[in-house]
């Protein structure tokens, strides 16, 4: 696939456009959420305020509008962008449906895995991933199945970290940084442009989503971000680096599934992983409580919500460094 190197002006324009479009859309999305009653409770605050929860629509449009405009105006990266556009629409639609009407927790990952189909149908993947120590491998039959599984795992992993103000956006921003470096240095410019656009959009979103949140991303946002990172990993041929950069998110997802005994809605959990007392989060000492990243972090000591988010970001930064080490030292 033809992948021309973008010039600096194009890169700056697409990043700034994503940032500004998202920033402009946030107030509109807030109004839309309020008008249709799509509000989520901020459960870690004493008064549990209701916050507009369709903020992910601003990330979705803030990422896709500049990308689509670039694909049309410059007539480049068209096949990859059409496949990505369809994949993003599928993931976001499922998220939006979940935000408006709760989906069956078993059905949800199955539906999200459909987001991988456009990537397979348009053939914008290479079934020869590079693995640590081994180098390039051939997975002609298995790879399409891994794409389907990958979308479900990564989207749900990012979704599982959207539990504190700014946590999902900040951890995703940090996970994107090694992918931006790797894609640029390896000449995978489609993945580079998609990563940079999502980064611009997430930074704008974080200004309103950080503590105390004025808007939530919702499932529409977190599933979109997860599906976009899956696309970046596949199109940019950096599957292993993406898995390692998202290790804290994937750990969180799997431990929740294991400790609650399968795919169940978090709303119906009998025991909570953390308790809020005097504005601080305390790790539950109960063995029946689910094991989560927030519980592991608050086991260090009771701490405020913004401090937990800073620790989550620190773990993500460490995972990002491990991703770079793996890519450049062990894969080459």
């Amino acid at each position: 696939m033809l992948s021309p190197q973008p010039n600096v002006l194009f890169v700056v324009m697409i990043f700034v456009s994503a940032f500004l479009i998202t920033l402009i859309l946030i107030p509109l999305v807030k109004r839309l959420s309020s008008s249709i009653g799509a509000m989520g409770s901020d459960v870690h605050k004493p008064d549990k305020p209701l916050i507009p929860k369709l903020g992910g629509l601003a990330i979705f449009l803030g990422t896709l509008i500049p990308l689509t405009a670039a694909a049309i105006i410059y007539n480049i990266y068209a096949t990859v962008f059409v496949a990505y556009l369809l994949s993003a629409i599928i993931a976001s639609s499922i998220g939006l449906l979940e935000d408006l009407r709760e989906l069956n927790p078993i059905l949800k990952p199955l539906l999200i895995s459909l987001a991988g189909l456009p990537i397979i149908l348009f053939g914008v993947y290479s079934p020869t991933p590079e693995l640590p120590f081994i180098g390039q491998t051939r997975m002609f039959l298995v790879y399409p199945l891994l794409i389907i599984a990958g979308y479900a795992v990564l989207s749900n992993a990012v979704n599982s970290t959207d539990v504190l103000n700014g946590s999902m956006a900040l951890m995703s921003i940090i996970a994107l940084i090694p992918l931006i470096f790797i894609s640029y240095l390896q000449g995978e410019y489609e993945a580079f442009i998609i990563s940079l656009t999502l980064l611009g959009s997430l930074i704008a979103f974080l200004t309103q989503n950080k503590y105390p949140s004025k808007i939530f991303a919702g499932n529409v946002g977190s599933l979109f971000v997860g599906a976009t990172i899956a696309t970046i990993a596949i199109v940019g041929k950096m599957e292993v680096a993406a898995i390692i950069a998202l290790m804290p998110q994937i750990m969180n997802e799997f431990h929740i599934i294991f400790s609650i005994g399968g795919l169940k809605s978090a709303r119906y959990l009998a025991k909570r992983p953390v308790e809020v007392k005097n504005g601080k989060l305390y790790a539950s000492r109960d063995r029946d409580s689910p094991v989560t990243l927030v519980r592991l972090i608050t086991a260090i000591q009771p701490m405020t919500e913004p401090r937990v988010v800073r620790y989550m970001a620190m773990l993500s930064a460490y995972a990002a460094i491990l991703a770079l080490i793996t890519q450049f030292l062990l894969i080459g």
Partner: peptide, 26 residues
Amino acid sequence: IILLTIIWALFLGVSVILSVLITLPE
């Protein structure tokens, strides 16, 4: 940090095992 490092190392180990067992080098 140590926990994350061990899980990373386990991932690398398993990816080597999987690549030997499941996949064929080019």
